[in-house]
Design a protein around this nucleic acid. Structure first.
Lengths: 172, 172
DNA sequence: CGATGGTGGTTCAACTTTTAAACAGTACCT
DNA sequence: AGGTACTGTTTAAAAGTTGAACCACCATCG
């Protein structure tokens, strides 16, 4: 079958998306590097742990939540552990397992960096969006994530039993 | 000033965006690594060069177009040159300058990989979007890019005098 | 029980990329 | 000429990523 090239509109949308997403990722990395001493991915690890009742998650679950390989996560957590923001603990249920736990210092780092981070997200993105566009954004990318995960994606979105937030604010 | 946290809707939109953009970038990298033997950024370099009348661009202009540092670009082009898909030529106008030129082989690689790439972009993204959403996407991210570039962004978008396409298809 | 196969997590070595700083050469302006 | 600014590269160090190999442990089934 002959290639269905992008229409000019799609072309423009794609280019805008690519440019912006790279700029955004760079900006997030720079800012968090500055304010929390770690890149965005690492910050996301802390944020993910913070949303758990006991501020901990098994390595595999964490890797799954972040869509990264276990190997990559091991590397990341090792560094975060060195930084003192995360610690590991053997899992009592499954002796193979290991839990990544957010330390108090980690929580402090998170809370210190979160306002700036949220501010950046807001000023780079939401500042310029109408409520309708926010809705569109979610709809579009939920679809994209679904399409890229082979499965429904929908199924895995509320996977973890404790993904519910006890209270307080999301650090994004 | 007390932090303006994200609303639940914004939160959802943000998470969806982050997850999807990482999945997408990974997918693009994997696919292009497979079909063109290079990551997405490198492919983008080829694609950018291909849209130029003479298939060449000065290093600084190229770096600016891709929003990456000159140092990073030097590294990338050195590799692409080794692969034979790009070559360098001294700039006659400005003896400091150096042009990155897409070779015939580079063009061939591009043309060989483009259909699959476009297909991936289409199936991961545009497949699921209404024309209105395509418009929204462009609008949203054009704004984001603008906001992140300090300047108007708009101003720099049609910067290069030859950014006009002679003919043929965009390789995305 | 005890073999078997699968899972959780880490380790290791090779590699790629990124960064920042320093540098040489060239342009331009007065 | 002299000073300043720009181009592009180099360099060394650091960081991150991958994939395979690996060990310890779980689960199951005969």
């Amino acid at each position: 079958m002959t290639t269905r090239w992008l229409t000019p509109e799609e072309q423009r949308a794609w280019r805008a998306y690519i440019a912006a997403s790279h700029l955004l990722e760079d900006a997030l990395d720079r800012q968090l590097q500055q304010e929390a001493g770690m890149p965005h991915l690492y910050y996301t690890i802390l944020a993910t742990l913070s949303e758990t009742p006991h501020h901990c998650l098994r390595m595999t679950d964490l890797a799954e939540a972040l869509k990264i390989t276990r190997s990559r996560l091991t590397y990341a957590v090792t560094r975060l552990e060195k930084d003192g923001v995360v610690r590991r603990q053997d899992c009592s249920m499954d002796k193979r397992g290991s839990l990544a736990i957010l330390t108090d210092e980690g929580m402090a780092v998170l809370e210190r960096a979160a306002p700036g981070h949220v501010e950046m997200v807001r000023s780079a993105l939401f500042e310029h969006l109408t409520p309708e566009q926010v809705g569109q954004l979610e709809e579009i990318f939920t679809g994209v994530a679904g399409a890229l995960q082979g499965d429904g994606g929908k199924a895995a979105s509320d996977d973890l039993p404790w993904r519910r937030r006890s209270s307080g604010q999301q650090c994004t």
